[in-house]
């Protein structure tokens, strides 16, 4: 016989896990690739240090972002970085009680969502 359990009503489910997972994915990506990307795109490519000649030429870069996998990489790196920053900023602003939560969500998640859509649109506009 199963013992009698006094049941408690379950509270309403939060949508926070969606943003938390995007935050987590972006945090992982930025920790792994962020510094490397800064060094690559900020220093090595402009100066041609340690990269093959023509490595960052327009046709090369265009070919990269026209490839479906290249598009996914660029989307992940741009969008997830923003979602990571958005969550961190949102929590900080919420802790500081900087405004009503809905406004803070629009200012953080909203910006990340908008930039994600813009990135997708641009990646599609570049063509395949």
């Amino acid at each position: 016989m199963r013992p009698t359990i006094l049941h408690h009503p379950a509270p309403k489910r939060s949508v926070a896990p969606v943003f938390w997972l995007l935050f987590g994915a972006g945090g992982m990506l930025s920790a792994l690739f962020g510094p490397a990307l800064i060094i690559l795109t900020g220093f090595m490519l402009p100066h041609g240090w340690g990269v093959p000649a023509n490595f960052s030429d327009f046709p090369h870069v265009l070919a990269f972002v026209r490839h479906p996998i290249g598009k996914l990489v660029v989307l992940a790196v741009i969008a997830l970085f923003f979602w990571h920053g958005a969550e961190r900023l949102f929590l900080t602003l919420k802790d500081m009680r900087a405004g009503p939560p809905l406004l803070l969500r629009l200012m953080t998640y909203g910006v990340a969502a908008l930039l994600t859509l813009v990135t997708i649109a641009l990646l599609l506009a570049i063509g395949f």
Binding site: A10, P11, K12, S14
Partner: peptide
């Protein structure tokens, strides 16, 4: 599952930063 169902809300595990 009983216990997890108690913490999915805004005042549950997600209130932690």
């Amino acid at each position: 599952q009983f216990r997890l169902d108690q913490i999915h809300g805004e005042d549950g595990v997600w209130a932690c930063t």
